[in-house]
Design a protein around this nucleic acid. Structure first.
Lengths: 146, 146
DNA sequence: CCAAATTGGTTTCGTTTGTAACCATCGAAA
DNA sequence: TTTCGATGGTTACAAACGAAACCAATTTGG
């Protein structure tokens, strides 16, 4: 533990990123291998599946995506006919996005897989460890939200 | 908490990624704003600063980077004269990488900033929360390592 | 020994990304 | 009203990325 050296393996930003990358990569099989979706597309699908109808801006806020990511994900899902846009009546800049039946079907198919993935990952932890990760993540999230 | 819906905000892969992204983005100021480094370049610097001399393969393993990322990061740091390559005597495929004085100077300048960043982030947590995140991350890392 | 498989590292190619500029629309203020 | 700043969303461009092909050197196994 020398003072002028940084131990990368225990450096929090690195550990977080590495972990997120590994988990995310593993989970991407669910949407990438099966349907050829990108992560932004999956998140868009997940946001709309969860909330029904959203604007692009709301999607970006909910799922922490840059507006260009949202824009591209939306147009690709639209081209695939998994979502449809409806112009807002009062404000013609805004579009309301909704999943089509096909999109909803895909979402419904993936939700159990996502839950199973999470469950299996957590099943490798003890109860105490599960509590720890939940508390730790929540604390970090709260710390960053300021 | 409906059965056929996934709550993205509490979905572990999403939370991890979002957190890692936010933290990493914030930390990138240290190497990006100051020196125009990319993350792979920073990690390469950090690996060599920590271990002295490494091969590209070892770098990739230590810092969880794809070999093409390592290759590109190394050549950019070399062009900047922050690191030098030395061919291996016995195996001519292998190159041993070391920081030059300039590279080492940059590393030494950034280490305290990195540590300060981490310290400040963790200072927003209670002692219990710090323990929790440490234990939780370690548990997840262990779970993935199998 | 020699062919085949493996390994260290680079390059090529198509895709994804972020930044910034952009277009259209809206709201507020003069 | 007209103007000006803010907002919703798209596009253009350059940089970064991953997969796969690649090259050269080395090891393995027959």
């Amino acid at each position: 533990m020398e003072a002028d050296t940084l131990e990368l393996e225990s450096f929090l930003p690195y550990r977080l990123y590495r972990l997120a990358d590994a988990v995310s990569r593993e989970f991407s099989r669910v949407y990438k291998d099966r349907h050829g979706l990108t992560r932004p597309e999956w998140r868009t699908l997940a946001g709309l599946g969860q909330h029904g109808t959203m604007t692009a801006t709301a999607l970006g806020e909910q799922s922490a995506m840059h507006k260009t990511k949202v824009s591209r994900a939306v147009s690709r899902l639209e081209r695939r006919r998994w979502l449809a846009r409806k112009p807002d009546e009062k404000d013609r800049r805004v579009e309301h996005l909704t999943l089509t039946n096909a999109g909803l079907a895909a979402y419904r198919e993936m939700v159990p897989l996502a839950k199973a993935f999470e469950r299996e990952l957590l099943s490798k932890l003890s109860t105490g460890e599960r509590v720890a990760i939940a508390e730790g993540l929540a604390a970090l999230e709260a710390a960053l939200g300021r």
